[in-house]
Design a protein around this nucleic acid. Structure first.
Length: 422
RNA sequence: GUGAGCGUAGCUCAAUAGGUUAGAGCACUGGACUGUGGCUCCAGGGGUUGGGGGUUCAAGUCCCCUCGCUCACCCCA
């Protein structure tokens, strides 16, 4: 029988990589603390309707990328493809509008999308998600963008491009949509097939088509900036002012449109050259109508999601520092069977002192055990045998220097601590 | 979902133009060194050449199917 392998598009994060993830997540947790965001854990699956209504029925994510299934009671459930809808659902369900606004939350975990796997794109992938709910203030948009930038700086990333745009709101977007259609209509035949399809369904998406000719045509397309209502225009202006005050470099890209229906006003992405076609390391924006779409009252919100795989890939590509790879400090070597019980006791005594220590249980030769100690990159080896037991000592070998000395049992812990510190 | 390239040991890769028993480095285990690692030398274990079918006297190599990986489109994080 064949060995069962992992399904397509998913992968194991092995220890060699997992410690890097831990670094990214720990750094995120710290930044969240500085920015006053609280961690939250949300379910991996929700009612399908949450996503189909929240994200939008005609979006690619909902139309063809969701893992949807019926549970044993016949309910239609879906593995979450993103976190924003769940965040809003959670806010509504727990009456968070009664708390101080905005409610600032963050979470990290796996998302699921049935897509063709590619570099930096998997069917199960991790996102860091940061959301601020319950405030219209443009300063909150600014804070969300600044959070992302602050995090990426803390991780040592460079050469990132920040692009922002305003996608308007239900008041002004229809007018822009019409203007865009009037412009595109005169060039309709020159558009690629997909864009011709988009013309009726979602003309805004023609703006970020990658096709050469479409790009050429859209270069002179009307920008939404000229069609924003006063409120959206003021809001956008204020966000940009804030960016300048904080010294965040950005590019205004009038062609930036986001694929999910719920975005209003501010939309932004952070791009990395390290990722090939999947160049967005982070994306987000404001979604003032999402809460109503899923049946709640009006709750404005703004947030972003960043892909952990893509962050790690970019960091590796740029040679960023991930901190210290976890390893062992001390390895205990038993020279003979007489020492086994003493060694066991020592093993746990050191662990109780919060020293990372390990030993070999297989009874290999002393040479092999030291080899293992080297392999594990232990700093010290504690050698125990009949000789040591008789004298009431432990032979401590410094594997970095090659020197060793006999240390009395009762001063061993202090000796080990002193030598690890040094 | 569409297109292209690629699947050989745990990893990185060899293997004339179809031709014997599919090799090497790293890693692993052991020995030289019987209580001292890294360096060196030696030895050992480990493969249904992703899976299935076909062509052939003969297939890792050619053909088909399938699974997977990679890249691009699409979309996005």
């Amino acid at each position: 029988m064949d060995i069962i392998k992992a399904p397509r598009g998913v992968r194991d994060i092995l220890p060699d990589e997992a410690w890097k993830w831990a670094y990214v997540l720990e750094t995120s947790r710290k930044v969240a603390g500085f920015f006053g965001y609280n961690e939250i854990h949300l379910p991996l699956f929700e009612h399908t309707e949450l996503f189909s209504r929240g994200i939008g029925d005609s979006t690619d994510v909902v139309e063809k990328e969701m893992y949807t299934f019926l549970d044993r009671a016949g309910r239609s459930l879906t593995l979450r493809p993103e976190l924003t809808a769940s965040m809003v659902r959670c806010y509504l369900e727990h009456g968070m509008s009664k708390k101080v606004q905005p409610v600032k939350l963050w979470s990290a975990g796996p998302m699921f999308r049935y897509e063709r796997p590619q570099k930096g794109r998997y069917r199960q992938f991790w996102q860091l998600d940061v959301e601020a709910l319950g405030s219209e203030a443009p300063e909150v948009d600014l804070e969300i963008i600044a959070f992302a930038i602050y995090l990426f700086n803390a991780l040592g990333l460079s050469n990132l491009e920040v692009v922002i745009n305003s996608v308007g709101c239900p008041v002004c977007r229809p007018g822009y949509r019409d203007a865009l259609k009037r412009y595109v209509g005169s060039n309709f035949d020159a558009l690629c097939n997909t864009c011709q399809n988009r013309f009726e369904r979602n003309p805004l998406r023609i703006l970020d088509c990658k096709n050469e000719r479409c790009r050429e045509i859209m270069k002179d397309a009307p920008g939404i900036a000229d069609y924003l209502c006063d409120e959206c225009s003021e809001h956008f202006k204020r966000v940009k002012e804030g960016m300048t005050i904080l010294g965040i470099n950005y590019k205004e890209d009038k062609n930036l449109v986001r694929g999910l229906d719920y975005y209003t006003k501010t939309a932004f992405e952070v791009l990395s050259g390290e990722l090939g076609a999947q160049n967005a390391v982070c994306g987000g924006g404001r979604y003032d109508n999402l809460a109503e779409t899923i049946g709640g009252p009006h709750v404005p919100g703004v947030g972003f999601a960043a892909g952990i795989e893509r962050i790690v890939l970019t960091m590796e590509g740029q040679g960023c520092d991930f901190g210290q790879q976890p390893g062992i400090d001390v390895f205990i070597v038993t020279a003979d069977d007489l020492a086994k019980n003493k060694a066991l006791k020592l093993l746990y005594d050191l662990r109780h002192e919060q020293i990372s220590v390990d030993m070999d249980y297989t009874g290999k030769s002393i040479g092999s055990q030291l080899k293992t100690a080297s392999n594990r990159e232990a700093k010290l080896a504690c050698i125990l045998g009949g000789v040591e037991i008789e004298k009431g000592v432990v032979t401590v070998k410094d594997l970095r220097k090659g020197s060793q000395s006999e240390v009395a049992n009762d001063s061993l812990i202090d000796y080990v601590k002193a030598n690890l510190a040094g």
